[in-house]
Nucleic acid binder design. Sequence first.
DNA 1: TAGATTGTTAATCGATTAACAATC
DNA 2: TAGATTGTTAATCGATTAACAATC
Lengths: 227, 227
Amino acid sequence: MDPALDFRPIPEPTLRRLPRYLHLLRSLESERETVSSTYIGKELGFDAIQVRKDIEHTGLIGRPKVGYTVQALVQAIEQTLGWNDPRRAFLIGAGSLGTALLGYPRFAESGLDIVAAFDTDESKIGTTIHGKVVLPLEKFDGLVKRMHVLVGILTVPAEQAQAIAERAVLAGMAAIWNFAPVTLRVPSHVVVQNEDLYIGLAALSQKLSLQLRQGALHEKEGHDAVR
Amino acid sequence: MDPALDFRPIPEPTLRRLPRYLHLLRSLESERETVSSTYIGKELGFDAIQVRKDIEHTGLIGRPKVGYTVQALVQAIEQTLGWNDPRRAFLIGAGSLGTALLGYPRFAESGLDIVAAFDTDESKIGTTIHGKVVLPLEKFDGLVKRMHVLVGILTVPAEQAQAIAERAVLAGMAAIWNFAPVTLRVPSHVVVQNEDLYIGLAALSQKLSLQLRQGALHEKEGHDAVR
DNA sequence: TAGATTGTTAATCGATTAACAATC
DNA sequence: TAGATTGTTAATCGATTAACAATC
Protein backbone atom coordinates (compact mmCIF):
# COMPACT_ATOMS: atom_id res chain seq x y z
CA MET A 1 0.00 0.00 0.00
CA ASP A 2 1.12 3.52 -0.71
CA PRO A 3 2.61 4.64 2.62
CA ALA A 4 1.25 8.14 2.10
CA LEU A 5 -2.19 6.67 2.69
CA ASP A 6 -1.25 5.78 6.25
CA PHE A 7 -2.45 9.12 7.51
CA ARG A 8 -5.67 9.24 5.61
CA PRO A 9 -8.66 8.27 7.67
CA ILE A 10 -10.23 4.94 6.78
CA PRO A 11 -13.40 5.52 4.71
CA GLU A 12 -16.52 5.20 6.78
CA PRO A 13 -18.00 2.23 4.87
CA THR A 14 -14.76 0.29 5.28
CA LEU A 15 -14.67 1.18 8.94
CA ARG A 16 -18.12 -0.30 9.35
CA ARG A 17 -17.07 -3.58 7.79
CA LEU A 18 -13.74 -4.12 9.53
CA PRO A 19 -15.27 -5.12 12.89
CA ARG A 20 -17.37 -7.73 11.13
CA TYR A 21 -14.30 -9.22 9.44
CA LEU A 22 -12.53 -9.22 12.77
CA HIS A 23 -15.35 -11.05 14.48
CA LEU A 24 -15.33 -13.77 11.84
CA LEU A 25 -11.55 -14.04 11.81
CA ARG A 26 -11.29 -14.44 15.55
CA SER A 27 -13.62 -17.40 15.40
CA LEU A 28 -11.45 -18.81 12.61
CA GLU A 29 -8.12 -18.37 14.33
CA SER A 30 -8.16 -21.79 15.94
CA GLU A 31 -9.36 -23.58 12.80
CA ARG A 32 -7.39 -22.24 9.88
CA GLU A 33 -3.98 -20.87 9.06
CA THR A 34 -5.00 -18.74 6.12
CA VAL A 35 -8.13 -17.24 4.62
CA SER A 36 -9.03 -15.78 1.24
CA SER A 37 -11.06 -12.69 0.46
CA THR A 38 -13.47 -14.98 -1.37
CA TYR A 39 -14.11 -16.93 1.80
CA ILE A 40 -14.65 -13.87 3.95
CA GLY A 41 -16.93 -12.37 1.36
CA LYS A 42 -19.06 -15.46 1.02
CA GLU A 43 -19.28 -15.87 4.75
CA LEU A 44 -20.42 -12.32 5.44
CA GLY A 45 -22.25 -11.54 2.23
CA PHE A 46 -19.78 -9.02 0.81
CA ASP A 47 -18.11 -8.85 -2.56
CA ALA A 48 -14.65 -10.47 -2.51
CA ILE A 49 -13.09 -7.51 -4.29
CA GLN A 50 -14.50 -5.21 -1.67
CA VAL A 51 -13.05 -7.33 1.09
CA ARG A 52 -9.66 -7.17 -0.61
CA LYS A 53 -9.90 -3.39 -0.93
CA ASP A 54 -10.81 -3.07 2.73
CA ILE A 55 -7.89 -5.24 3.78
CA GLU A 56 -5.63 -3.04 1.70
CA HIS A 57 -6.44 -0.21 4.11
CA THR A 58 -4.88 -2.17 6.95
CA GLY A 59 -1.60 -2.33 5.07
CA LEU A 60 -1.43 -6.12 5.23
CA ILE A 61 -0.15 -7.89 2.14
CA GLY A 62 -1.52 -11.28 1.22
CA ARG A 63 -0.08 -14.03 -0.92
CA PRO A 64 -1.55 -14.96 -4.29
CA LYS A 65 -3.12 -18.40 -4.34
CA VAL A 66 -2.83 -18.64 -0.54
CA GLY A 67 -4.69 -15.63 0.78
CA TYR A 68 -4.00 -13.95 4.11
CA THR A 69 -2.65 -15.41 7.34
CA VAL A 70 -5.60 -15.33 9.71
CA GLN A 71 -3.53 -14.29 12.69
CA ALA A 72 -1.74 -11.54 10.79
CA LEU A 73 -5.04 -10.25 9.49
CA VAL A 74 -6.57 -10.18 12.95
CA GLN A 75 -3.62 -8.17 14.18
CA ALA A 76 -3.64 -5.84 11.20
CA ILE A 77 -7.31 -5.00 11.70
CA GLU A 78 -6.88 -4.55 15.45
CA GLN A 79 -3.96 -2.28 14.76
CA THR A 80 -5.92 -0.26 12.23
CA LEU A 81 -8.84 0.19 14.59
CA GLY A 82 -6.53 0.99 17.47
CA TRP A 83 -7.92 -1.93 19.41
CA ASN A 84 -4.62 -3.50 20.37
CA ASP A 85 -4.26 -1.43 23.48
CA PRO A 86 -7.67 -0.70 24.98
CA ARG A 87 -8.55 2.77 26.14
CA ARG A 88 -9.90 3.30 29.65
CA ALA A 89 -13.43 4.62 29.89
CA PHE A 90 -15.96 5.70 32.48
CA LEU A 91 -19.62 4.87 32.13
CA ILE A 92 -22.13 7.38 33.44
CA GLY A 93 -25.63 6.19 34.22
CA ALA A 94 -26.00 2.69 35.64
CA GLY A 95 -29.61 2.16 34.56
CA SER A 96 -30.69 -0.81 32.50
CA LEU A 97 -28.84 0.33 29.39
CA GLY A 98 -25.71 1.08 31.38
CA THR A 99 -25.99 -2.31 33.06
CA ALA A 100 -26.35 -3.98 29.68
CA LEU A 101 -23.20 -2.27 28.41
CA LEU A 102 -21.24 -3.20 31.52
CA GLY A 103 -22.12 -6.81 30.78
CA TYR A 104 -21.45 -6.61 27.07
CA PRO A 105 -18.86 -9.20 26.15
CA ARG A 106 -15.40 -8.48 24.92
CA PHE A 107 -15.35 -4.69 24.97
CA ALA A 108 -11.82 -5.03 26.29
CA GLU A 109 -10.91 -6.89 23.09
CA SER A 110 -12.50 -4.08 21.14
CA GLY A 111 -10.45 -1.20 22.34
CA LEU A 112 -12.50 -0.22 25.36
CA ASP A 113 -11.72 -0.88 29.00
CA ILE A 114 -14.59 0.28 31.19
CA VAL A 115 -12.95 1.14 34.46
CA ALA A 116 -15.91 2.19 36.57
CA ALA A 117 -19.51 3.35 36.44
CA PHE A 118 -21.09 6.45 37.97
CA ASP A 119 -24.59 7.10 39.19
CA THR A 120 -26.53 9.27 41.61
CA ASP A 121 -28.78 6.49 42.87
CA GLU A 122 -27.78 5.81 46.50
CA SER A 123 -28.93 2.21 46.27
CA LYS A 124 -26.54 1.50 43.43
CA ILE A 125 -23.49 3.33 44.70
CA GLY A 126 -20.91 0.99 46.16
CA THR A 127 -22.29 -2.08 44.41
CA THR A 128 -20.57 -3.75 41.51
CA ILE A 129 -22.25 -4.55 38.20
CA HIS A 130 -20.60 -7.21 36.08
CA GLY A 131 -17.45 -6.64 38.06
CA LYS A 132 -17.37 -2.86 37.75
CA VAL A 133 -17.84 -0.67 40.80
CA VAL A 134 -20.53 2.02 40.82
CA LEU A 135 -19.24 5.32 42.21
CA PRO A 136 -21.11 8.48 43.22
CA LEU A 137 -21.34 11.04 40.45
CA GLU A 138 -19.63 13.66 42.66
CA LYS A 139 -16.39 11.78 42.29
CA PHE A 140 -16.61 11.76 38.50
CA ASP A 141 -14.91 15.02 37.59
CA GLY A 142 -12.05 14.54 40.01
CA LEU A 143 -11.33 11.00 38.89
CA VAL A 144 -11.42 11.92 35.21
CA LYS A 145 -8.76 14.53 35.85
CA ARG A 146 -6.66 12.41 38.18
CA MET A 147 -6.73 9.24 36.06
CA HIS A 148 -6.73 10.99 32.69
CA VAL A 149 -9.63 8.92 31.44
CA LEU A 150 -10.44 10.18 27.96
CA VAL A 151 -13.58 8.31 27.03
CA GLY A 152 -17.02 8.73 28.59
CA ILE A 153 -19.97 6.45 27.90
CA LEU A 154 -23.22 8.31 28.36
CA THR A 155 -26.17 6.16 29.37
CA VAL A 156 -28.12 8.75 31.29
CA PRO A 157 -31.67 9.96 30.54
CA ALA A 158 -31.93 12.39 27.65
CA GLU A 159 -32.60 15.39 29.91
CA GLN A 160 -29.31 14.97 31.75
CA ALA A 161 -27.08 14.10 28.82
CA GLN A 162 -26.03 17.63 27.85
CA ALA A 163 -25.11 18.62 31.39
CA ILE A 164 -23.05 15.50 32.00
CA ALA A 165 -21.34 15.89 28.63
CA GLU A 166 -20.27 19.38 29.61
CA ARG A 167 -18.87 18.15 32.90
CA ALA A 168 -16.99 15.42 31.08
CA VAL A 169 -15.46 17.88 28.64
CA LEU A 170 -14.56 20.31 31.37
CA ALA A 171 -12.83 17.55 33.28
CA GLY A 172 -10.75 16.77 30.21
CA MET A 173 -12.46 13.98 28.37
CA ALA A 174 -11.77 13.83 24.64
CA ALA A 175 -14.47 11.46 23.43
CA ILE A 176 -18.06 10.69 24.29
CA TRP A 177 -19.98 7.60 23.29
CA ASN A 178 -23.50 8.91 23.51
CA PHE A 179 -26.46 6.60 23.98
CA ALA A 180 -28.92 9.34 24.89
CA PRO A 181 -31.21 10.31 22.02
CA VAL A 182 -30.10 13.94 21.93
CA THR A 183 -27.70 15.99 19.88
CA LEU A 184 -24.87 17.00 22.20
CA ARG A 185 -23.25 20.39 21.91
CA VAL A 186 -19.54 20.09 22.59
CA PRO A 187 -16.40 21.97 21.54
CA SER A 188 -15.10 20.92 18.16
CA HIS A 189 -12.06 19.14 19.55
CA VAL A 190 -14.25 16.65 21.40
CA VAL A 191 -15.23 13.50 19.52
CA VAL A 192 -18.84 12.39 19.82
CA GLN A 193 -20.08 9.02 18.65
CA ASN A 194 -23.85 8.85 18.73
CA GLU A 195 -25.39 5.44 19.14
CA ASP A 196 -28.78 6.29 17.79
CA LEU A 197 -31.20 3.37 17.78
CA TYR A 198 -33.67 5.27 15.66
CA ILE A 199 -31.27 5.07 12.74
CA GLY A 200 -31.28 1.30 12.92
CA LEU A 201 -35.02 1.43 13.21
CA ALA A 202 -35.26 3.55 10.08
CA ALA A 203 -33.17 1.05 8.16
CA LEU A 204 -35.30 -1.81 9.44
CA SER A 205 -38.59 -0.13 8.52
CA GLN A 206 -37.31 0.71 5.08
CA LYS A 207 -35.95 -2.76 4.32
CA LEU A 208 -39.08 -4.43 5.62
CA SER A 209 -41.54 -2.39 3.59
CA LEU A 210 -39.41 -2.90 0.51
CA GLN A 211 -39.33 -6.63 1.13
CA LEU A 212 -43.04 -6.86 1.77
CA ARG A 213 -43.77 -4.90 -1.38
CA GLN A 214 -41.54 -7.19 -3.43
CA GLY A 215 -42.94 -10.26 -1.73
CA ALA A 216 -46.46 -9.20 -2.60
CA LEU A 217 -45.35 -8.58 -6.17
CA HIS A 218 -43.79 -12.00 -6.52
CA GLU A 219 -46.76 -13.69 -4.96
CA LYS A 220 -48.97 -12.09 -7.54
CA GLU A 221 -46.69 -13.49 -10.22
CA GLY A 222 -46.85 -16.85 -8.52
CA HIS A 223 -43.20 -16.92 -7.44
CA ASP A 224 -41.57 -17.38 -4.12
CA ALA A 225 -40.37 -14.27 -2.40
CA VAL A 226 -36.65 -14.41 -2.96
CA ARG A 227 -34.20 -11.59 -2.88
CA MET B 1 -39.82 14.95 -7.58
CA ASP B 2 -39.81 12.55 -10.45
CA PRO B 3 -42.59 10.10 -9.56
CA ALA B 4 -40.61 7.22 -11.04
CA LEU B 5 -38.26 7.60 -8.08
CA ASP B 6 -41.02 6.68 -5.66
CA PHE B 7 -40.13 3.02 -5.90
CA ARG B 8 -36.42 3.39 -5.57
CA PRO B 9 -35.12 2.70 -2.10
CA ILE B 10 -33.87 5.70 -0.20
CA PRO B 11 -30.04 5.80 -0.29
CA GLU B 12 -28.55 4.51 2.90
CA PRO B 13 -26.77 7.76 3.87
CA THR B 14 -30.00 9.70 3.49
CA LEU B 15 -31.82 7.08 5.50
CA ARG B 16 -29.35 7.57 8.32
CA ARG B 17 -29.93 11.33 8.39
CA LEU B 18 -33.73 11.40 8.15
CA PRO B 19 -34.31 10.30 11.76
CA ARG B 20 -32.05 13.06 12.97
CA TYR B 21 -33.99 15.66 11.01
CA LEU B 22 -37.19 14.23 12.38
CA HIS B 23 -35.98 14.47 15.94
CA LEU B 24 -35.05 18.11 15.52
CA LEU B 25 -38.26 18.94 13.69
CA ARG B 26 -40.48 17.40 16.34
CA SER B 27 -38.88 19.61 18.96
CA LEU B 28 -39.47 22.57 16.65
CA GLU B 29 -43.12 21.86 15.90
CA SER B 30 -44.45 23.92 18.79
CA GLU B 31 -42.09 26.84 18.17
CA ARG B 32 -42.05 27.53 14.46
CA GLU B 33 -44.29 27.34 11.44
CA THR B 34 -41.59 26.88 8.85
CA VAL B 35 -37.95 25.89 8.66
CA SER B 36 -35.23 26.26 6.03
CA SER B 37 -32.64 23.71 4.95
CA THR B 38 -30.02 26.21 6.09
CA TYR B 39 -31.41 26.13 9.61
CA ILE B 40 -31.59 22.35 9.79
CA GLY B 41 -28.10 22.05 8.40
CA LYS B 42 -26.60 24.50 10.84
CA GLU B 43 -28.39 22.90 13.75
CA LEU B 44 -27.23 19.36 12.98
CA GLY B 45 -23.92 20.06 11.29
CA PHE B 46 -24.90 19.07 7.77
CA ASP B 47 -24.57 20.91 4.51
CA ALA B 48 -27.75 22.80 3.61
CA ILE B 49 -27.70 21.46 0.06
CA GLN B 50 -27.49 17.95 1.38
CA VAL B 51 -30.47 18.57 3.64
CA ARG B 52 -32.42 19.81 0.64
CA LYS B 53 -31.46 16.74 -1.39
CA ASP B 54 -32.53 14.47 1.43
CA ILE B 55 -35.87 16.22 1.77
CA GLU B 56 -36.36 15.79 -1.95
CA HIS B 57 -36.49 12.03 -1.32
CA THR B 58 -39.56 12.48 0.84
CA GLY B 59 -41.38 14.11 -2.06
CA LEU B 60 -42.20 17.25 -0.09
CA ILE B 61 -41.97 20.53 -1.96
CA GLY B 62 -40.87 23.65 -0.15
CA ARG B 63 -41.41 27.27 -0.94
CA PRO B 64 -38.58 29.58 -2.03
CA LYS B 65 -37.77 32.26 0.51
CA VAL B 66 -39.98 30.55 3.09
CA GLY B 67 -38.64 27.03 3.42
CA TYR B 68 -40.65 24.01 4.49
CA THR B 69 -43.68 23.80 6.75
CA VAL B 70 -42.41 22.07 9.87
CA GLN B 71 -45.53 20.00 10.31
CA ALA B 72 -45.63 18.93 6.68
CA LEU B 73 -41.97 17.98 6.82
CA VAL B 74 -42.47 15.91 9.94
CA GLN B 75 -45.27 14.05 8.24
CA ALA B 76 -43.36 13.61 5.01
CA ILE B 77 -40.39 12.06 6.80
CA GLU B 78 -42.61 9.83 8.93
CA GLN B 79 -44.38 8.72 5.78
CA THR B 80 -41.11 8.00 4.01
CA LEU B 81 -39.79 5.95 6.91
CA GLY B 82 -43.10 4.17 7.28
CA TRP B 83 -43.37 5.41 10.84
CA ASN B 84 -46.89 6.77 10.59
CA ASP B 85 -48.45 3.48 11.45
CA PRO B 86 -46.25 1.55 13.86
CA ARG B 87 -45.57 -2.13 13.32
CA ARG B 88 -46.15 -4.58 16.13
CA ALA B 89 -43.08 -6.36 17.46
CA PHE B 90 -42.12 -9.01 20.00
CA LEU B 91 -39.00 -8.68 22.07
CA ILE B 92 -37.17 -11.87 22.97
CA GLY B 93 -34.81 -11.80 25.94
CA ALA B 94 -35.78 -9.62 28.89
CA GLY B 95 -32.28 -9.19 30.28
CA SER B 96 -30.76 -5.79 30.95
CA LEU B 97 -30.54 -4.88 27.27
CA GLY B 98 -34.09 -6.04 26.64
CA THR B 99 -35.25 -4.08 29.66
CA ALA B 100 -33.47 -1.00 28.38
CA LEU B 101 -35.19 -1.31 25.02
CA LEU B 102 -38.60 -1.81 26.61
CA GLY B 103 -38.04 1.48 28.40
CA TYR B 104 -36.66 3.31 25.40
CA PRO B 105 -38.76 6.37 24.79
CA ARG B 106 -40.93 6.95 21.78
CA PHE B 107 -40.40 3.74 19.86
CA ALA B 108 -44.11 3.89 19.12
CA GLU B 109 -43.52 7.25 17.42
CA SER B 110 -40.74 5.64 15.44
CA GLY B 111 -42.63 2.89 13.73
CA LEU B 112 -42.31 0.20 16.36
CA ASP B 113 -44.94 -0.98 18.80
CA ILE B 114 -43.46 -3.53 21.18
CA VAL B 115 -46.41 -5.70 22.15
CA ALA B 116 -44.83 -8.12 24.58
CA ALA B 117 -41.54 -9.59 25.76
CA PHE B 118 -40.53 -13.23 26.03
CA ASP B 119 -38.08 -14.95 28.36
CA THR B 120 -37.34 -18.33 29.90
CA ASP B 121 -36.54 -16.96 33.36
CA GLU B 122 -39.35 -18.09 35.67
CA SER B 123 -38.84 -15.12 37.95
CA LYS B 124 -39.50 -12.69 35.12
CA ILE B 125 -42.44 -14.41 33.49
CA GLY B 126 -45.74 -12.79 34.35
CA THR B 127 -44.15 -9.52 35.45
CA THR B 128 -44.38 -6.34 33.42
CA ILE B 129 -41.39 -4.25 32.41
CA HIS B 130 -42.11 -0.66 31.47
CA GLY B 131 -45.70 -1.66 30.91
CA LYS B 132 -45.00 -4.69 28.72
CA VAL B 133 -45.83 -8.16 29.94
CA VAL B 134 -43.15 -10.86 29.97
CA LEU B 135 -44.42 -14.16 28.58
CA PRO B 136 -42.87 -17.63 28.63
CA LEU B 137 -40.86 -18.43 25.53
CA GLU B 138 -43.01 -21.49 24.82
CA LYS B 139 -45.85 -19.22 23.86
CA PHE B 140 -43.72 -17.29 21.38
CA ASP B 141 -44.17 -19.34 18.20
CA GLY B 142 -47.90 -19.72 18.64
CA LEU B 143 -48.49 -16.05 19.31
CA VAL B 144 -46.38 -14.95 16.36
CA LYS B 145 -48.55 -17.07 14.10
CA ARG B 146 -51.83 -16.13 15.70
CA MET B 147 -51.18 -12.40 15.91
CA HIS B 148 -49.17 -12.14 12.68
CA VAL B 149 -46.42 -10.21 14.37
CA LEU B 150 -43.75 -9.61 11.74
CA VAL B 151 -40.90 -8.03 13.69
CA GLY B 152 -38.77 -9.72 16.32
CA ILE B 153 -36.29 -7.90 18.54
CA LEU B 154 -33.48 -10.21 19.57
CA THR B 155 -31.86 -9.36 22.90
CA VAL B 156 -30.79 -12.84 23.91
CA PRO B 157 -27.23 -14.02 24.59
CA ALA B 158 -25.12 -14.65 21.50
CA GLU B 159 -25.26 -18.43 21.86
CA GLN B 160 -29.04 -18.52 21.64
CA ALA B 161 -29.54 -15.94 18.92
CA GLN B 162 -29.38 -18.26 15.90
CA ALA B 163 -31.82 -20.78 17.36
CA ILE B 164 -34.35 -18.12 18.31
CA ALA B 165 -34.01 -16.47 14.91
CA GLU B 166 -34.86 -19.77 13.24
CA ARG B 167 -37.93 -20.18 15.43
CA ALA B 168 -39.00 -16.64 14.59
CA VAL B 169 -38.65 -17.24 10.87
CA LEU B 170 -40.43 -20.57 11.04
CA ALA B 171 -43.29 -18.94 12.88
CA GLY B 172 -43.60 -16.39 10.10
CA MET B 173 -41.64 -13.33 11.13
CA ALA B 174 -40.34 -11.19 8.28
CA ALA B 175 -37.81 -8.98 10.05
CA ILE B 176 -35.36 -9.35 12.89
CA TRP B 177 -33.72 -6.51 14.78
CA ASN B 178 -30.67 -8.29 16.07
CA PHE B 179 -28.76 -7.03 19.11
CA ALA B 180 -26.73 -10.19 19.60
CA PRO B 181 -23.16 -9.89 18.33
CA VAL B 182 -23.47 -12.75 15.84
CA THR B 183 -24.13 -13.05 12.13
CA LEU B 184 -27.53 -14.66 11.75
CA ARG B 185 -28.21 -17.12 8.97
CA VAL B 186 -31.73 -16.64 7.70
CA PRO B 187 -33.53 -17.20 4.39
CA SER B 188 -33.05 -14.39 1.93
CA HIS B 189 -36.62 -13.13 2.21
CA VAL B 190 -36.13 -12.30 5.90
CA VAL B 191 -34.85 -8.84 6.72
CA VAL B 192 -32.14 -8.61 9.37
CA GLN B 193 -31.03 -5.36 10.92
CA ASN B 194 -27.90 -5.83 13.01
CA GLU B 195 -27.36 -3.41 15.84
CA ASP B 196 -23.68 -3.98 16.24
CA LEU B 197 -22.11 -1.87 18.98
CA TYR B 198 -18.64 -2.79 17.83
CA ILE B 199 -19.20 -0.75 14.69
CA GLY B 200 -19.86 2.35 16.75
CA LEU B 201 -16.83 1.51 18.80
CA ALA B 202 -14.70 1.27 15.68
CA ALA B 203 -15.86 4.69 14.57
CA LEU B 204 -15.16 6.13 18.01
CA SER B 205 -11.66 4.65 18.22
CA GLN B 206 -10.83 5.90 14.76
CA LYS B 207 -12.11 9.42 15.32
CA LEU B 208 -10.41 9.68 18.68
CA SER B 209 -6.97 8.59 17.53
CA LEU B 210 -7.27 10.93 14.55
CA GLN B 211 -8.23 13.76 16.87
CA LEU B 212 -5.46 13.05 19.34
CA ARG B 213 -2.91 12.88 16.53
CA GLN B 214 -4.10 16.21 15.16
CA GLY B 215 -4.24 17.71 18.64
CA ALA B 216 -0.65 16.70 19.29
CA LEU B 217 0.34 18.15 15.93
CA HIS B 218 -1.28 21.47 16.68
CA GLU B 219 0.18 21.65 20.14
CA LYS B 220 3.61 21.21 18.69
CA GLU B 221 2.88 24.12 16.38
CA GLY B 222 1.59 26.10 19.32
CA HIS B 223 -2.04 26.15 18.23
CA ASP B 224 -5.19 25.10 19.96
CA ALA B 225 -6.64 21.79 18.95
CA VAL B 226 -9.53 22.80 16.75
CA ARG B 227 -11.20 20.76 14.09
C1' DT C 1 2.39 -26.97 -14.67
C1' DA C 2 -2.35 -25.05 -14.09
C1' DG C 3 -5.43 -22.75 -11.34
C1' DA C 4 -6.55 -19.85 -7.63
C1' DT C 5 -5.88 -15.64 -5.58
C1' DT C 6 -3.55 -11.56 -4.98
C1' DG C 7 -2.43 -6.39 -6.01
C1' DT C 8 -2.96 -2.83 -9.47
C1' DT C 9 -5.02 -0.09 -12.73
C1' DA C 10 -9.21 1.43 -15.02
C1' DA C 11 -14.36 1.91 -15.49
C1' DT C 12 -18.64 2.55 -13.36
C1' DC C 13 -21.73 4.16 -10.25
C1' DG C 14 -23.82 7.00 -6.95
C1' DA C 15 -23.54 10.53 -3.43
C1' DT C 16 -22.02 15.06 -2.43
C1' DT C 17 -21.14 19.60 -3.74
C1' DA C 18 -21.54 23.57 -6.76
C1' DA C 19 -23.90 26.80 -9.83
C1' DC C 20 -27.83 29.18 -11.01
C1' DA C 21 -32.39 30.31 -12.64
C1' DA C 22 -37.07 30.49 -10.61
C1' DT C 23 -39.90 32.53 -7.11
C1' DC C 24 -42.22 33.98 -2.87
C1' DT D 1 -38.51 45.58 -4.94
C1' DA D 2 -34.49 42.96 -3.17
C1' DG D 3 -32.90 39.15 -0.88
C1' DA D 4 -33.39 34.65 0.77
C1' DT D 5 -34.36 30.13 -0.34
C1' DT D 6 -36.02 26.75 -3.21
C1' DG D 7 -35.65 23.09 -7.17
C1' DT D 8 -32.89 21.77 -11.11
C1' DT D 9 -29.04 20.79 -13.70
C1' DA D 10 -24.11 20.03 -13.92
C1' DA D 11 -19.43 19.07 -11.87
C1' DT D 12 -16.83 16.77 -8.51
C1' DC D 13 -15.55 13.35 -5.60
C1' DG D 14 -15.02 8.90 -3.68
C1' DA D 15 -16.52 4.17 -3.21
C1' DT D 16 -17.63 0.07 -5.62
C1' DT D 17 -17.00 -2.94 -9.29
C1' DA D 18 -14.49 -4.82 -13.21
C1' DA D 19 -10.43 -6.34 -15.75
C1' DC D 20 -6.13 -8.35 -15.77
C1' DA D 21 -1.23 -9.18 -15.14
C1' DA D 22 1.71 -11.09 -11.44
C1' DT D 23 2.64 -15.04 -8.62
C1' DC D 24 2.63 -18.82 -5.32
